[in-house]
Amino acid sequence: MSTKSVVLTGITTTGTPHLGNYVGAIRPAIEASRDRSVQPYYFLADYHALIKCHDPERVRQSTLEIAASWLALGLDTQNAVFYRQSDVPEIVELTWMLACVTAKGLMNRAHAYKAAVQANQEADEADLDKGVTMGLFNYPVLMAADILMFNAHKVPVGRDQVQHIEMARDIGQRFNHIFGEHFVLPEAVVGEETAVLQGLDGRKMSKSYDNTIPLFAPERQLRKLIMKIKTNSQLPGEPKDPAQCTLFSIYQAFANKHEVEEARRWYAEGIGWGDMKTKLYEYLNDHLATARERYEALLQEPERIEQELRAGAAKARAHAVPFMQRIRESVGIRPLGR
């Protein structure tokens, strides 16, 4: 039995990966996938996608694009288990069993549910649960099943997701208390140094703000988007503050230490915004060119991606099937006569 620490990360399949996703989550996860001292699990959270997205083609296309992105960037699938959530049916079965020991009051305190209720209050809706599906209400239980199924020790998350890891601990602890010790209680890992990229408008790069730059945008689109990045009205020749500049923040997230110092000199010397945008475009285009070629090739061969995901699901189920059998027996679901 492996004594490696298990680290688990899920990626919701509702959008196209952008530069912010890469810097904040994808790049560190891919680096971690090569660490032989841990057992990483990375999964495409397509059941989670259904909570907010009822566009089947978008879910399918996002699954394709996200999987292609991770593979094109060098995810080590020999070490990491890379799978689609829906290919491991034991996760859904475990979700039901966990739901049967989860207090409704705990779900009432989930941030997403409380936000929906508050929005209805502010809109003077008579029904405070208007628009709330059971998927939205129960998704912390599905997330707990994702984590507890593989006895993850650590779950890297943003600060807004810490509550869900705490809930997974509470749910796992409750199940252990009733049915015996089955689950490791996970810990949230919040990366203090995780880079947060600014988007086209200077706010955090997010699909919610419609200000993103797709990670593998074609050259012409990449140039066009970079040229749209918001800057101030300082003229060429005026010294500029890199700390207040979206262009610099993006450049810094990709460049090495020497290149960043060189860029600081450009700002001190008063580089024009048009020139800086051109430099950023050329740098990113060069930096991402090889991975973009691999990405575009993978999109043309979805069966290769499918093969990788099926292989990952087989690895995941090699753990999940016998583990779920033990869980079933612990709750009394087992053949008669024993």
Rank of each mutant, 00 (worst) to 15 (best):
T9N: 14
T13D: 01
P17K: 04
H18K: 06
V23T: 11
I30E: 01
Q39M: 15
Y42G: 03
D46Y: 00
A49K: 04
R60T: 13
W70V: 02
T77Y: 04
N79E: 11
A80T: 01
A80W: 00
D87L: 07
V88G: 02
E90W: 11
I91M: 09
L98S: 00
A103G: 12
E122M: 11
A123C: 11
V141D: 02
M143N: 06
A144S: 15
A145V: 11
V157C: 13
G172S: 04
R174M: 03
F175N: 01
F179K: 02
L185K: 05
P186K: 02
E192T: 10
G202K: 05
T212M: 06
A217H: 02
P218F: 10
I226Q: 01
K228D: 08
K230Y: 09
G237Y: 13
D241V: 09
D241H: 10
A243N: 13
T246A: 13
Q252K: 15
E262S: 08
R264Q: 14
G274L: 07
D275V: 13
M276Y: 12
E282A: 14
N285E: 14
L288K: 03
A291R: 04
E296T: 12
A297Q: 15
A313R: 01
A318G: 06
F323A: 03
Q325A: 15
R326F: 05
I327P: 00
R338F: 10
